[in-house]
Design a binder for these strands. Structure first.
Length: 404
RNA sequence: GUGAGAUUAGCUCAGCUGGUUAGAGCACUGGUUUGUGGUGCCGGGGGUCGCGGGUUCGAAUCCCGUAUCUCACCCCA
């Protein structure tokens, strides 16, 4: 038997589809209310795009991309995240030169060659937004409110963590200080952290090793080294969220895994879905557009991990819906299909194509969770009526075929 | 890439220290004497026990390998 690839799932159960659909409806709706437009970019892009945006030091680019050479000899890969493609499209279509504000949202599959576990698949879905042209921290705040709106509408609980990663003014000096600190403790930190020191020193702060955490509690904090502009923005952000009564905790150890983030970084966490607890993450990336040869443009965005969210969504209870049509005599079948077909134009209708007993039809109607069971038997055929039973209030009646 | 646990009917699982026709519940399907479901009764179909080797007179059961799933690390949404 041929199976789907590891970490790649089919969506075929009604329940799963309803969750997916419900999430998309809510998320797209909220995004449009915030003035965002839908954008769709290809699943395949040049590998260089991700190397330059996500960053070669990241695990995503380093070891998780589905990368291959196509028949034309091009080095391409399946997108591991959504931002790079949107930024590429933004620049390619010269929106950077047009100036002004441009806001986009997208959703679709992403691909990362990882070991699957709860809330982590090789083909997974993200919903994300990207906002270009606004340097104001008000936009950062708006995006956080937007995520909050989406989660509230879905009935999902979360905690919000905030941090500032600084900008190209204040980050580099801080990084030097941190490296110096790490070197002082080089003999006591874990092997992973030894490695991180060289590749991405900020990441050590995120280490889950408790011995390391005890050491990093005394590490220099970026929050204390922010430049005036970053500091003011971060304070403003917290005030704006306070006014909206959005609770947050400041986590000075929160870092983003992708190289392009600066200043505001945030992560929405759920405690109910296992170790992969980040259900949304985002932040500002003011320098990315110029890294990809665009005209310097401030930008901020976020992405939501759809699969991680789906099991948290509380769906409204499903109610009986539509019609079930059945006949008790073979001769009634053509009429049955004709009437059922007419009903299909306005209602969900299931038609049984073989004659069965009334009991069997009621059983079928119940199984397909229909609201009404319509049956044509010998009596109905003679009187030119339909027997209709409401499966909820159990009332039944005969309706003339002409007025049905 | 690392570690742990799992894999027996469509689903959830049982199967004792290897022993002969591999079970249950649910689901499916048929019937239930004259036309009433979700909640009665009786019957039926369905499994090369993940796959490949090995040990043995004999393997679902023991050993090795491999694939997949689950959870965790790593990483990230």
């Amino acid at each position: 038997m041929i199976r789907s690839l590891r970490g790649m799932n089919d969506i075929l159960e009604e329940e799963q589809y309803r969750r997916f659909n419900h999430f998309h409806n809510v998320a797209c709706h909220v995004a449009m209310r915030y003035g965002f437009h839908y954008i769709e970019t290809p699943l395949l892009e040049e590998t260089a795009l991700f190397k330059r945006s996500v960053g070669e030091s990241s695990d995503i680019v380093g070891k998780e991309m589905y990368q291959f050479t196509d028949k034309g000899g091009n080095d391409i890969c399946l997108r591991p995240e959504g931002t790079a493609g949107v930024v590429r499209a933004f620049i390619q279509h010269k929106y950077d030169k047009k100036g002004g504000i441009h806001r986009f949202f997208y959703h679709g599959p992403m691909f990362r060659y990882e070991r699957p576990q709860k809330g982590r698949l090789r083909e997974f879905h993200q919903f994300g937004v990207e906002s270009f042209g606004l340097a104001s921290v008000y936009e950062d705040a708006s995006l956080i409110m937007m995520v909050s709106d989406i989660f509230n509408a879905l009935g999902i609980g979360y905690t919000l963590q905030l941090n500032s990663l600084g900008c190209h003014e204040c980050m580099p000096p801080y990084r030097e200080k941190l490296i110096a600190f790490i070197e002082q403790h080089a003999d006591t930190i874990c092997g992973d952290c030894q490695r991180r020191k060289a590749t991405n020193p900020i990441r050590v702060l995120d280490c889950k090793n408790s011995a390391c955490q005890a050491i990093y509690a005394h590490a220099p904090k970026l929050m204390d080294h922010l430049c005036t502009s970053c500091n003011t923005d971060f304070t403003t952000l917290t005030l704006l969220l306070d006014k909206e009564h959005i609770a947050y905790t400041i986590d000075t150890h929160l870092v983003r895994g992708l190289d392009y983030y600066s200043k505001t970084a945030f992560e929405f966490i759920s405690n109910d879905i296992g170790a992969q607890s980040a259900i949304a993450g985002g932040g500002r990336y003011d320098r990315l557009i110029e890294f990809l040869d665009g005209k310097p443009t401030p930008a901020v965005g976020f992405a939501i991990g759809v699969e991680r969210l789906l099991e948290l969504i509380k769906l409204p209870q499903q109610e009986r819906e539509g019609y079930y049509f059945g006949a008790m005599d073979h001769e009634a079948l053509p009429l049955l299909l004709q009437l059922g077909q007419r009903k299909r134009r306005s209602e969900k209708t299931i038609i049984e194509y073989s004659a069965k007993s009334l009991k069997a039809h009621l059983k079928n109607a119940d199984r397909v969770y229909a609201r009404y069971c319509v049956v044509i038997g010998a009596n109905e055929l003679k009187e030119n009526t339909l027997w209709v039973k409401d499966l909820v209030n159990k009332k039944e009646q005969h309706i003339p075929v002409d007025s049905f």
